[in-house]
């Protein structure tokens, strides 16, 4: 088994890539994908610690995270489709009507 710290570094890198995607991309769909990546980074930690601490609760929590991720994607994509219907685009900078 590899040291726990390496798993943590790996999941931080994945999380960072997810944050980067949300920060720099302008396409709403790719931002949603990056959100999924961040959730997966969290899941990797949960499952790694469930192995290292010999406790199954981590895996159960990972299942709940997947549930939340699935519902989030369903709603997020529905919103993206609704936005596309209104403005014919999924570029987020077109949606600035709440700007003061």
């Amino acid at each position: 088994m590899i040291p726990v710290s390496h798993v943590l570094v790996y999941s931080v890198i994945l999380f960072g890539i997810g944050v980067l995607g949300v920060l720099i991309r302008r396409n709403a769909l790719i931002m949603l994908m990056s959100l999924e990546l961040m959730m997966n980074a969290a899941n990797i930690n949960l499952i790694a610690f469930s192995r290292y601490l010999d406790n199954v609760a981590g895996q159960v929590f990972a299942i709940f995270v997947m549930c939340v991720a699935a519902s989030e994607v369903a709603i997020g994509l529905a919103i993206a489709v609704a936005l596309y219907r209104n403005k014919n685009s999924v570029q987020i900078d077109y949606f600035n009507e709440l700007k003061g």
């Binding site: 726990v4 710290s5 570094v9 960072g16 890539i17 920060l23 720099i24 290292y52 010999d54």
Partner: peptide, 25 residues
Amino acid sequence: SIILVILLIVILGATFLTMPFGEAP
């Protein structure tokens, strides 16, 4: 943003690497 994220990874990564974690059973 890229610089910020790299900073985040480096700081958190360095913290994790120096933390005393136990061995896996």
